[in-house]
Structures are given as C-alpha cells and as structure tokens.
Design a protein around this nucleic acid. Sequence first.
DNA 1: TATCAATTGCAACATTGTTGCGTTTAATTT
DNA 2: AAATTAAACGCAACAATGTTGCAATTGATA
Lengths: 130, 130
Amino acid sequence: MKTTRNTAAKTAVLEVFEKSKTALSHTEIHKQLNDLCDRVTIYRILDRLINEDIIHKISNLDGTVKYAKCNHSHQRVHIHNHAHFSCENCHEITCLESVKPSYIMPHNYKVNEINFTLSGLCPKCLNSNI
Amino acid sequence: MKTTRNTAAKTAVLEVFEKSKTALSHTEIHKQLNDLCDRVTIYRILDRLINEDIIHKISNLDGTVKYAKCNHSHQRVHIHNHAHFSCENCHEITCLESVKPSYIMPHNYKVNEINFTLSGLCPKCLNSNI
DNA sequence: TATCAATTGCAACATTGTTGCGTTTAATTT
DNA sequence: AAATTAAACGCAACAATGTTGCAATTGATA
C-alpha cells in the first residue's frame, strides 16, 4: 500500500484551503503560494488530496475547475452530493452543504453521483445592488 | 443588427447534431466533419448556434465540454434548466428533458440558472451488465 | 544515521480555446 | 446578372490548463 507524506508544499496548500471560505482554482492556489513550489507539484498535491477525501473538485458551468475542502462533520460516509453556488458577479464558488435536490429519474438508469450547480448572485453581491 | 448566414460548414455541423442522439464535443464534431472546415470555424459556429438558441453547452463533472441540440417542443420560453446524464462506462451525455430537480435555497441568494448533472450507468450499459 | 519510496522540479508535450488579419462568400441591391 | 458588403472563413500565432518522464531531493521508518 502506498503511504502518503506530509511535505512542506502539501501543508502550505492545506493552509490556503483553511484560510479560504470559497472554492479555489489551481491558478489561485499557485498565486497564493507565491512560487513556494512548482505548478506541476500543485496538480499532484490536489490529486492526492482528492484521493484522501480531503478536498473535492468542482467543474463549473463556464468550464473552470475549482477545489474545496470537504465537510465531513455530518456524515459517516462521505458523499459529495451537495450543491455549489457560483456567483455571476464576483465569481466565487461556495458549497451549499444544506441544499440537496430531489428528483425523479426515468427507469433503467443507475445514478452513482450527482452534480448540482446553481448560478446567480450571492448574498454579498445581491446586497450591493448589482 | 447582425444578420446570420447559412454556410456550408454551419449546415454540416447542424446535420451532425441531427444525426446524434447524444451530446457532442468539439473534437467529436471536428472528426465527423472530416476536415470540411477549420477547427476555429467549428468553435465560431458553435458560438453562433448557442446565441441562436439552437444548441446548448454542457460542462461535465470531468471538465469536458459538450454541445447538444435544444428541445423547444414543450416550452414557449426556452429554459436550459433540465438535467444531463453522463455515463461512466460509454461516456455518452444525454439530455434528461423530463428531469427537473426541486430544491430549497438559503435566503439572500438569487438563482438565475441551474446545472444538474447525474453520472452513473445509462440503460444501454446497465443492461450489458458492466 | 542509513535506507528507500514518495515527492519534487524541470522540460517537454497535449489539448482546448482565443485572437488578429487578410481572403472568401452568402445575401442583398442595383 | 453583376456589384456590393458585411458575415464567415482559413491560417498562424498565442494562451491557459493539464499531463508525463526522469533525475534529484526529502520524509518517514528502521
């Protein structure tokens, strides 16, 4: 079995996630780390963190990809079936842990995973009367 | 006002969509057209078709982007808030026009658009006992 | 402290999408 | 039917994002 190590770069990436309330793109993480490590290293760290179920990947409507810390607090088994909100004004992505869509599927489909992304205006931008 | 023209390339792209029951990527379209036109031209045709509300763009969980013909049959006003199904085995994307999720949002969010993608096994692959 | 596989940096490459610009062409007018 | 003209095109170049191979480095363990 492969063991995983705590390196300076991995710790730094995790700290960036801790400090951020919203999901982050690879580029945003790279900028915040300020050349502490190579671009490629960040991709590999993100891959590892996903495998370790510490972060999850979010693909947005506009094709951009972001990553966010997982919230394990309320579940024994970790499921990523929560919703994400993408603000059209400030482009921040937030996890809506409490929003779970209900839906009825046609027969003969086996659903393993769902992705539910809503876009519009977040509370911050809505209050600014944009 | 900008007028739009019916060119050979645009007609060919539309025929590819007509023939396909599933959503298509730029690359898949390019291959089917067999060098009838340039790669860039296809991007520009897709942009136009989206503006004309003839096709819509689908961003998948894995970060890939596909396009599919819009189904206007049941609606006066065209809304893209239907679900998409992404098969983990054959990687086909199909529109689930009848699936509309219901959900409850926290206050102070203004939702303009939703994207609901389910992944798992499609009927074809489910029956093949994968 | 020595060991060794996990991790890293670097270079190179692949894919996807965009932009500028000169040329071609569809649709309209003459 | 020919002239007009803006839309559409091809080509080249570029940008962003992500991947791979390999030699060098380093964290965890003995």
